[in-house]
Design a protein around this nucleic acid. Structure first.
Lengths: 207, 207, 207, 207
DNA sequence: AATGAATGAGATTTCATTCAT
DNA sequence: TATGAATGAAATCTCATTCAT
């Protein structure tokens, strides 16, 4: 006769599961973690796992979805605080992403990392992220501030690949670079910057 | 306890396995393919699989290693044929990568793709690829053709992330872009280009 | 990928597994029994096997450990009931072992038998069993009742090898000897008896 | 087109296989050695293995059979050199066994050791070894030199178990005892000695 | 005779999932 | 609702054995 052990933290089973999943996915990779381990780490029964998530990948998707909103939020907040000048906004947005990867390395790794077993199953979560950048580029292009020849959609995607690749690599071993350096490099290589039409009368270098 | 029914059959069992593995990994992803399926597709016994590769990941590593050499070769060949001007060399190298991903989409996807279960196990195969780019940038930096402020190692890595990201995305659905567009976009965003110090007396735009 | 059909069935799965393992190990030998067969015989899923024992040898070890305690218990109980005279105690202990091998032939065979694949893995379970005998001999040696020249540790081990060898051989085919004969032979050859210093003035027993 | 590599030592393939098998069985145990490994160690093709032995257990049996004859030979030689007195003969025979286990530890271990997977398959090789001892005891019993109550067959078996057990244990770690001690202990506990009827008028040896 | 690549039955082990409590 | 023992399909890997060369 086994009695159910009443836990003080029954309501937050879901939160515990998300947190346990995050830690385990980040440490061992998506593939070598299973629902039982997540439940055990969350100090929750396996049954509880399945009453909150239909399967392992749902939990993964939930983590990713939270991460993506978090990152979007961080970027928006940074943009609100930045001035109106495009370059300032760009730097603010990049810096926000760098900071986010610094503050949530596990979430970042799990969401964007290469070892993403079952990637096919959770679909194109990441896909839409390049939209805002593309829009911004398009606007500036209309204003004549960005080269007309640039394919803004491609460029936006390309930038995002770069940012993600760099931040993943950086978080693998944070001693590889300073946050500042990263921001500078990413800003420098951002299409907004690199495909900028030089403003008349302004010398590039002294900026 | 009782087994067998061997044929002298194939001397190129290894080649068949590599090819079968490539096709299956590319189609179903690393995770949903197993040694049995690879062997069956290669028309080879399971035992044969294991007498050629200690495990699934060894085969994967072999594929990756071949892909990386192939890509390196393609780049070197393109550089040999390109003229001496850095920009031409850059474009040739980028075009070679684009063409490689076009001609070997499966190998490219398997080697660089996101759904890479067990990625941890096969170590930093990709790591060294950014070296040549970094060296080239450094050289040009010394010659004053690239901004001194640029961290060439970071920039080289960043570019590579971008290239890989774009080509993977492109090969998922080739109608997403034209090869030419891709080359142009990648060249445009390449640090060699975007961090270029404008040569004195030459107007940027009319080029 | 899709599985299951669980029943709340057995709470004593472990007991069933132990019993099935014992029967199979005894009948077919350690080597020709596998976890699947044990589970099937125990009317339990294979998964259940592995949720109770990390592998086949753990189950084997568990059986051995139980057997050894059982045998020790039986000896101690016999000694409690025997009188104070060393010879009576000796005979009681030997008889207890003989009876134990008679009552638990499978357990005896599995624990002490020669066909012990993976013996190396379960370490020196048996090793300590000769300790009590050695201690008893040492005590009697101090009292001058056993020859001083005798190496009691060696002798204790030697006796145990003899007892085990005889009982295994006997249980292979119980018609080979009578329990009484065995007890007499073992007592006769026991170092306590054979290395006894003849008590002055007493003619050798019934001789 | 693979050519057969002519080896200098083609004729002694069998000897090489026996030797390789002995070494591997002794080191890794019967169970964790397979025909391929034996052939590789013998520097011989697997096919060659099977043209000399029908299976792994045949080779094992061949090793055991050689070991048993070797041990018998050693005993007989020792008996030839010993004087006519039973006690001298006994000591010579025991010493020969001790020496044999010292000189051929691997063969002894493989033949008599506990980790004997597939023991069932090679049948009662060891069984007959106690015959000579039993016969000797019977003879002495007839001459009134050994107690009439003793079951000589049981006693002979018992002694052999003891000898084998001790020597296996000793060879596991030779520092556990001196060869001399072992001989003395075994002689002391041998039924010929321990069940000896004291000769009238003779005080117990040097006592 | 000697070789060794090839073979596949089978052993071991994992893990997503169910359901009686 | 929470639990976790039980489950078995499926994956990984081993190895005795054959046979074309």
């Amino acid at each position: 006769m086994i009695c159910v052990m009443p836990r003080a933290k029954i309501q937050d089973a879901e939160a515990r599961l998300l947190s346990a999943g995050l830690a385990l996915f980040a440490r061992y990779g998506t593939e070598r973690v299973n629902s039982n381990k997540i439940a055990r780490r969350a100090q929750v029964g396996i049954g509880t796992f399945y009453s909150h998530f239909p399967d392992k990948f749902s939990l993964l998707r939930a983590i990713e979805s939270r991460t993506l909103s978090g990152l979007r939020e961080a970027r928006l907040a940074a943009l609100r605080d930045a001035g109106p000048r495009p370059l300032d906004q760009l730097r603010a947005s990049v810096a926000a992403a760098v900071r986010f990867s610094e503050e949530h390395p596990e979430a970042y790794r799990v969401t964007f990392g290469r070892e993403r077993a079952g990637a096919a199953r959770h679909g194109p979560l990441v896909s839409e992220s390049s939209r805002p950048t593309a829009d911004a580029l398009r606007r500036l292009q209309t204003q004549g501030l960005v080269q007309l020849g640039l394919d803004v959609d491609l460029a936006a995607r390309a930038y995002l690949s770069m940012e993600v690749g760099m931040l993943l690599w950086w978080r693998e071993d944070p001693s590889r670079a300073q946050a500042d350096q990263l921001v500078e490099t990413l800003v420098e290589l951002h299409p907004l910057q690199s495909a900028r039409v030089p403003e008349p009368g302004s010398r590039e270098a002294g900026d």
